[in-house]
C-alpha cells in the first residue's frame, strides 16, 4: 500500500513547551499594555455604572449616570462644540498641510528653512504658544486688533465673544498641527515615483490635473492616517458649552 501524507498530521497543533518563546517575547509588552490601557479602560467602564465618590460606600447604579448625562443639555452642546472643533481643525489642517508639502517638495533655494519654520509650532511648548496667542488675540493692544484699527475697523473680542472664541481656538490649533500634517504629507509625496509624474506630463496633464488626479489619490492612505490621528488628537480636547 502506498504511503500518503496526512493533512491532519501536518496541521497538528504544537505544544506550549515547543513554542513557549513565541509567548515569552511579547509577554512584557502585553503585560504593560494590559496594566496601562486595558485594565484602566475596563475599570472606568465599571466605575461608570456606580455612584463612586470615595466618601461613601459605592453602589451599582447601572445606567443612571448615562441617562443623567444624555438628558443634560450642556453635555449635548459640549459634544456638538467638540465635533465642530474637531472638523474645523482636522480638515483645514490637512488641506493646508498638503498644499505646503506640495510647495516645499520641489527643489528650490531655502526649502529647508521654510520646512523648519512651518514645523516649529509642533516643537514649541503649548503653554508658551498659548501665551503668545493670548497676546495676538488681546482685545486692546493685540496685533490683530491693531491691524483692524489701521484699516478703520472696530476691535473684536477674539477670545471673549462666544461667536468668535471657537474660530480663534481653531485657528490656533491649525497653526499648531499644520507642521505635523506637512511633514507626513512630505514623506508621502516623496514616496510617489517620479516616473508617474513624468508619464502624466507626457500624457498632457497640467499642474492642476497632476495634483488632483495623481497626487491627491496617491496620498489617500496618508490622508486617511493623518485624518485619524488629527481626529483623535483634537477630539481629546473636549470643548465645554460656551453659552
Amino acid at each position: 500500500m502506498a504511503l500518503q501524507s496526512s493533512p491532519v498530521a501536518a496541521a497538528r497543533p504544537q505544544s506550549f513547551t515547543q513554542n513557549w518563546s513565541a509567548y515569552a517575547f511579547p509577554a512584557p509588552a502585553l503585560i504593560i499594555l494590559f496594566l496601562s490601557l486595558l485594565l484602566p479602560a475596563a475599570t472606568t467602564l465599571v466605575m461608570s455604572l456606580t455612584d463612586i465618590s470615595f466618601l461613601r460606600p459605592t453602589n451599582f447604579v447601572w445606567l443612571e449616570n448615562y441617562i443623567k448625562l444624555f438628558s443634560d443639555g450642556r453635555f449635548r452642546q459640549a459634544v456638538g462644540n467638540t465635533a465642530y472643533y474637531t472638523v474645523g481643525v482636522t480638515f483645514p489642517t490637512m488641506v493646508l498641510g498638503l498644499l505646503a508639502a506640495t510647495a516645499l517638495n520641489g527643489k528650490f533655494r531655502g526649502r529647508i528653512v521654510f520646512r523648519t519654520i512651518f514645523y516649529l509650532p509642533v516643537l514649541t511648548s503649548l503653554i508658551a504658544a498659548a501665551v503668545v496667542w493670548m497676546y495676538v488675540y488681546e482685545p486692546y493692544s493685540g496685533p490683530i486688533n491693531g491691524a483692524l484699527a489701521q484699516m478703520g475697523l472696530p476691535p473684536q473680542p477674539w477670545l471673549q465673544s462666544p461667536d468668535l472664541a471657537m474660530t480663534s481656538l481653531i485657528i490656533m490649533a491649525i497653526w499648531r498641527d499644520f507642521g505635523t500634517a506637512m511633514i507626513i504629507y512630505l514623506a508621502g509625496l516623496q514616496d510617489i515615483p517620479k516616473d508617474v509624474y513624468e508619464a502624466a506630463r507626457l500624457d498632457g496633464a497640467k499642474t492642476k490635473d497632476i495634483f488632483l488626479r495623481i497626487t491627491v489619490p496617491m496620498l489617500s492612505s496618508v490622508s486617511f492616517y493623518l485624518m485619524i490621528i488629527l481626529i483623535v488628537q483634537t477630539f481629546q480636547c473636549s470643548v465645554p458649552s460656551m453659552s
Binding site: 516616473d195 508617474v196 513624468e198 508619464a199 488626479r213 489619490p217 496617491m218
Partner: peptide, 9 residues
C-alpha cells in the same frame, strides 16, 4: 517607461 509608470490608483 522602464518601471511602466502606471497610475496605481
Amino acid at each position: 517607461f522602464q518601471s511602466y509608470a502606471l497610475y496605481p490608483h
